[in-house]
């Protein structure tokens, strides 16, 4: 596989590269405001569109939007906490494999010494 991160390529890339629309932080802001705008529209539309709910809860105004927002927010916050318990370094299992292999080798040597 070709490694595009050779120093030379990087420097050449930085010098010659064209500017992309997203490179401008103002455009990123536009996306952000666009998103807020769409959400506001959906909020308004909620009062216009007639729904056919299965459960009472669905009648609450903007239930789906509210639920989606809270679900995603809590999901990320909870997952970030989960890291404290579950996160190990990248080579966690490889190191373990190496330890066992070394031990197995020792035992083989001992075995053949007997």
């Amino acid at each position: 596989m070709n490694d595009p991160r050779s120093e030379e390529a990087l420097q050449r890339g930085a010098a010659e590269e064209k500017k992309y629309w997203l490179d401008d932080p103002r455009n990123v802001d536009k996306i952000w405001y666009g998103l807020i705008g769409i959400c506001a529209l959906l909020l308004v539309a909620d009062f216009v569109v007639e729904k056919h709910p299965y459960f009472e809860l669905e009648n609450a105004p903007n239930f789906y939007g509210f639920y989606g927002f809270v679900a995603c927010f809590l999901l990320v916050v909870a997952a970030a906490q989960l890291r404290k318990v579950l996160m190990r370094d990248e080579d966690y299992y490889q190191r373990l494999d190496a330890e066992y292999e070394a031990r197995a080798e020792n035992e083989r040597d001992e075995g053949s010494a007997h």
Partner: peptide, 28 residues
């Protein structure tokens, strides 16, 4: 609604820096 408001949550978390960064790691 469910999709755009979820997207909004992502954007808010990114903007506020609450979003956990991608880290070199193994998760148990």
């Amino acid at each position: 609604q469910i999709l755009f408001f979820s997207g909004l949550a992502f954007a808010v978390l990114q903007k506020t820096g609450l979003y956990p960064p991608e880290l070199k790691s193994t998760n148990l």
